Amino acid sequence: MSIGMSFGLVFGLTLFDNIAMGLPLGMGIGIAIGASLDADAKNKGKTI
């Protein structure tokens, strides 16, 4: 989630000129990446 929030801050400052728009966007990106990595690990039978 921290990686997604850092990307969100960058996108928020460059595209929207507003940090408050970037933080939720980055949090969503981070949660999506984390969920996909968790699902991939579960399919491979690895413990999280």
Results as ranks from 00 to 15, higher is better:
residue 15 L to M: 14
residue 6 S to Q: 14
residue 23 L to N: 05
residue 18 N to P: 01
residue 6 S to G: 15
residue 22 G to R: 08
residue 5 M to K: 02
residue 38 D to G: 07
residue 4 G to K: 00
residue 42 K to H: 08
residue 9 L to M: 06
residue 47 T to Y: 13
residue 8 G to Q: 08
residue 42 K to S: 01
residue 30 G to S: 05
residue 47 T to D: 15
residue 42 K to V: 08
residue 42 K to N: 10
residue 36 S to I: 12
residue 29 I to R: 04
residue 34 G to P: 12
residue 25 L to F: 06
residue 2 S to R: 14
residue 4 G to M: 01
residue 2 S to G: 14
residue 5 M to V: 11
residue 46 K to Y: 06
residue 1 M to W: 11
residue 23 L to Y: 02
residue 7 F to S: 00
residue 35 A to R: 14
residue 4 G to N: 06
residue 41 A to Y: 02
residue 27 M to R: 07
residue 3 I to C: 08
residue 1 M to F: 13
residue 38 D to I: 10
residue 24 P to E: 08
residue 22 G to M: 05
residue 38 D to N: 03
residue 44 K to M: 02
residue 13 L to S: 04
residue 42 K to Q: 09
residue 18 N to M: 13
residue 17 D to P: 00
residue 47 T to R: 15
residue 18 N to Y: 09
residue 37 L to E: 13
residue 15 L to P: 09
residue 39 A to S: 02
residue 40 D to C: 10
residue 44 K to P: 01
residue 38 D to E: 14
residue 24 P to V: 04
residue 39 A to C: 08
residue 24 P to I: 10
residue 29 I to L: 07
residue 27 M to L: 10
residue 25 L to C: 05
residue 43 N to Y: 13
residue 44 K to D: 00
residue 20 A to E: 12
residue 25 L to T: 02
residue 18 N to Q: 13
residue 29 I to M: 00
residue 37 L to C: 11
residue 41 A to N: 09
residue 14 T to A: 11
residue 38 D to Y: 06
residue 14 T to M: 14
residue 12 G to F: 07
residue 10 V to S: 03
residue 14 T to P: 00
residue 24 P to F: 09
residue 36 S to R: 14
residue 5 M to E: 05
residue 7 F to R: 03
residue 30 G to Q: 00
residue 5 M to R: 01
residue 36 S to A: 15
residue 24 P to N: 12
residue 32 A to H: 10
residue 34 G to N: 12
residue 7 F to I: 13
residue 5 M to H: 02
residue 19 I to T: 08
residue 48 I to P: 04
residue 26 G to I: 03
residue 13 L to Y: 07
residue 45 G to H: 01
residue 11 F to K: 00
residue 42 K to C: 03
residue 33 I to Y: 05
residue 32 A to I: 11
residue 5 M to W: 00
residue 27 M to V: 07
residue 18 N to W: 08
residue 43 N to F: 12
residue 19 I to G: 07
residue 33 I to C: 05
residue 46 K to D: 11
residue 31 I to F: 00
residue 48 I to G: 11
residue 13 L to C: 02
residue 6 S to F: 15
residue 37 L to P: 04
residue 46 K to A: 10
residue 13 L to A: 08
residue 19 I to D: 03
